[in-house]
């Protein structure tokens, strides 16, 4: 039911874990629907220099989280904001149709973490 790429990211998730003093952080989803994703970022010179995720959810939720961190790492904030759930799913060679709602979370979480960073910057600035 899952592509090899999904299983690869599920088995060996990239950038999984906690981050000390992140520059931006966000959590999306809720436990009722069975998917929660948390993304933390470090930003240097307007680029995502480091990124970490934690996920409670199905195989697709874990794989999309892992994939979005890999895709976002090293990108400028503007480039990272262009990533969508669709591009994440495509990078994983697709997801089963019923799983498409899981992949929405990955890009959402990333965008919210960037938003969190920008708001913090405003306050500090």
């Amino acid at each position: 039911m899952y592509s090899e790429k999904v299983m690869n990211h599920f088995t060996n998730p990239r950038n999984m874990g906690d981050m000390e003093n992140p520059d931006g952080k966000a959590q999306v989803g809720n436990p009722t629907c069975g998917d929660i994703m948390e993304i933390a970022i470090k930003v240097e010179d307007n680029r995502i220099s480091d990124i970490r995720f934690k996920t409670f959810g199905c195989g697709a939720a874990v794989a999309t989280s892992s994939m979005v961190t890999e895709m976002a790492k090293g990108k400028t904030l503007e480039e990272a904001e262009q990533l969508t759930n669709k591009t994440v799913a495509e990078a994983l060679d697709g997801l089963p149709p019923v799983k498409m709602h899981c992949s929405n979370l990955a890009a959402d979480a990333l965008h919210k973490a960037i938003q969190d960073y920008r708001e913090k910057q405003k306050k500090e600035g």
């Binding site: 998730p13 874990g17 959590q27 436990p31 929660i36 994703m37 948390e38 934690k54 996920t55 409670f56």
Partner: peptide, 8 residues
């Protein structure tokens, strides 16, 4: 669980 934000 190590992967889960709920556990954390």
């Amino acid at each position: 669980r190590q992967m889960s934000p709920l556990y954390q």
